[in-house]
Design a binder for these strands. Structure first.
Lengths: 138, 138
DNA sequence: GTGAATGCAAAACCTTTGCAACTGG
DNA sequence: CCAGTTGCAAAGGTTTTGCATTCAC
């Protein structure tokens, strides 16, 4: 990971925050969730440092910051092009992969000459697990 | 518009905020931009009311709340399915329409059985105008 | 050793809330 | 009339910032 930081210092805190994001990646943790877990492992770490490190890692392209509506940002170490699906019922977040050879911009009628540098796709709805649960109960 | 509010009261403030959002729609105004303009037209209006009304209108489906990263929400009266393009250079926001008969979810490999209720697509990059400017100067 | 990174607390920012006063139907 | 809406001010949650201290290189 050191080399991925592009010359910046490798501190205990940076390694720790990165490890925690990886460990918690299935839940797409927020900064404060990362902080809780990091603090358990390193009681002296501060919330500001967690924010700083998350920003550093995001800028280095090692993790991705995921925003949905105005909720707290979540962080994920999945670097493949992917979208996020938020289940309104169980509040969990899933990665949604781009299909093979698909172009995320294809359905959109972009003005000629625009240069897309980043694309952010988030969906809200009900996940398969919750729908099954609903069918069983309802 | 009264009927679109579904039985709720039509107040001066609601009409005003809606008119301002429509007036400023090319710029995709934030709540505080709407507030500034609304306050100019009705000095007694409060920021909380602007927020309340924007929420009411959003819930009524008359306007859409647009979120990009952690920036302040923007509001737009365009009800067609569309995405947003944010130019990193001139900071403006453009609507991007869905192509005829296109499906925004098509490029994405959604797990079987998910039910999408809402989809949010935002792009960042350089708009055609800025690219032209850059080519001329650079 | 020295500049970069940390920890702390305070501030910034956008947004929501509680409540008394007002008003639209 | 009176429930729904407003205006105000205060609080909320997330994120950023300033600065003295510590640490990686």
């Amino acid at each position: 990971m050191a080399e991925m930081l592009g010359g910046q210092r490798m501190t205990k805190q940076r390694r720790l925050v990165f490890d925690v994001v990886k460990e918690l990646s299935p839940t797409h943790p927020t900064a404060s969730t990362v902080y809780e877990r990091a603090k358990y492992l390193m009681p002296s770490i501060s919330l500001a440092t967690v924010y700083n490190v998350l920003e550093t890692l995001t800028e280095a392209g090692i993790i991705t910051q995921v925003n949905i509506d105005r909720e707290a940002s979540r962080f994920c170490p999945n670097l493949h092009p992917h979208a996020h699906f938020f289940c309104d019922q169980c509040d969990s977040v899933f990665d949604v992969d781009l299909r093979e050879r698909a172009d995320a911009a294809e359905p959109w009628n972009l003005p000629n000459g625009s240069l897309i540098e980043q694309m952010n796709v988030a969906m809200r709805g009900i996940c398969p697990e919750c729908r099954e649960k609903n069918d069983a109960t309802g």
